[in-house]
């Protein structure tokens, strides 16, 4: 699963580097678990969206055009950063800003039961 990189990152442009990452992003059936490539400390200083624009263009676009994208609520605000990363944010994460909305929902409903991830619109 893991790929060895022997090219120092600074010798390749940002976009090339993203292409190098591409093969290691795997999607497993309905559980959609993505395995993130290992990054050097240097690479961790690139913003998530910069790589994901090319690695997961559809997700990035959904986010970019959503109210979160326009208001610049960035990836790390919901998903955390390296070391604290979580694939699926919890109610508690949403509650930081959306406390009052949460009080209107029953406590056993996850936010994603009603809202589409990255679009944030209510599911019809």
């Amino acid at each position: 699963m893991r790929r060895q990189r022997d090219i120092p990152w600074f010798k390749v442009s940002l976009s090339m580097m993203v292409l190098l990452f591409m093969p290691v992003v795997v999607h497993a059936d309905n559980n959609a678990k993505a395995v993130h490539p290992e990054l050097s400390e240097q690479e961790m200083y690139i913003s998530c969206a910069d790589c994901h624009k090319e690695a997961t263009p559809e997700l990035e676009k959904q986010w970019y055009d959503s109210s979160h994208g326009i208001a610049i609520v960035k990836c790390y605000q919901c998903h955390g950063t390296f070391g604290t990363f979580k694939l699926t944010p919890t109610r508690t994460d949403c509650a930081v800003c959306h406390m009052d909305q949460l009080t209107k929902c029953s406590t056993d409903t996850a936010c994603w039961d009603c809202h589409t991830p990255h679009l944030f619109k209510a599911k019809k």
């Binding site: 893991r2 678990k33 395995v35 604290t84 990363f85 694939l87 919890t90």
Partner: peptide
Amino acid sequence: NKDEKVLNVGVT
């Protein structure tokens, strides 16, 4: 994480 048989460790 470095174990070949492990795909990912996610902290929740």
